[in-house]
Simulated scan of single mutants.
Amino acid sequence: MNDRLPHEKGFHVSWDQIHRDSRALAWRLDKRGPDDGAWRSIVAITRGGMAPAMIVARELDIRKVDTISVKSYDWQEQASAKVLKSPDADVMSDGGKGVLIIDDLVDTGKTLELVRQLYPNAHFATVYAKPQGREMVDTFITEVSQDTWIFFPWDMALQYVRPYRGN
């Protein structure tokens, strides 16, 4: 019998790793925008999408960056997604055409499904993707299993962790 909690099958991401993976996302998105390959702006889904969006904006020299705040988790429990703050209406004209919407992770896809309904012409990119939400994202870098909990550097502190197998 396994007495581990589901989130204990962890994928730990360091600041170096999120930076490398976000740069890889930028390279994958480069010259793929609708305006002769260019993107008009970036909208980060707060809070997890802010660090990757900053890195992608720097790599692709995109100066217009905004946020959309969507709450879909209460601690580690997923809840109904709801928009707490929308991006500027001028940025999202034409349903988001030419806009990159960036998040750290697509899990079940509920957050991106809500945002996609609001901005159907935007391009959705995440650094990490789980199978259940993968169809909601247009571009991603790394896929992990649905039962893996990703520990991002902004959520961690250094401490001892038991080995995955054994005591």
Rank of each mutant, 00 (worst) to 15 (best):
N167E: 09
V144E: 04
F140Q: 02
K9H: 13
A81V: 06
A38V: 00
K110G: 10
V99E: 03
V13C: 11
A57K: 00
G96T: 03
G133E: 04
Q132R: 15
L29I: 02
I150M: 05
I55H: 03
S72T: 04
S14R: 02
W15N: 06
M136E: 15
E59L: 01
S93L: 12
H7S: 11
W15Y: 14
A122I: 04
R40Y: 00
V144A: 03
R23K: 15
A157D: 10
G109P: 11
R134Q: 15
D90T: 10
K9L: 12
F151H: 08
R23C: 11
T111P: 04
H7K: 11
G98W: 07
S145G: 13
T139C: 11
G33Y: 07
V161Q: 12
M1K: 11
Q117R: 14
Q76L: 12
Q159D: 14
T46H: 00
Y128F: 15
V106E: 03
T126S: 13
S145W: 00
Q132V: 02
A81L: 09
A26F: 08
G98M: 05
S69F: 07
R4A: 07
A51F: 12
R32V: 00
G133D: 03
R28D: 15
N167G: 10
G37Y: 07
A89P: 13
N2S: 15
K9M: 10
V127A: 12
W39Q: 04
H12A: 14
D94H: 13
A157F: 08
F151N: 15
W75G: 04
V91C: 10
K64I: 01
N2W: 03
P153K: 04
A157P: 00
K64F: 01
D155Y: 01
V99P: 08
V127L: 09
V144Q: 04
I141C: 07
F124W: 01
T139G: 02
W27E: 14
T139S: 14
S72A: 15
L29W: 06
P6D: 01
G48T: 09
L29M: 05
K64A: 03
V56S: 03
W15P: 03
R116M: 07
V56G: 01
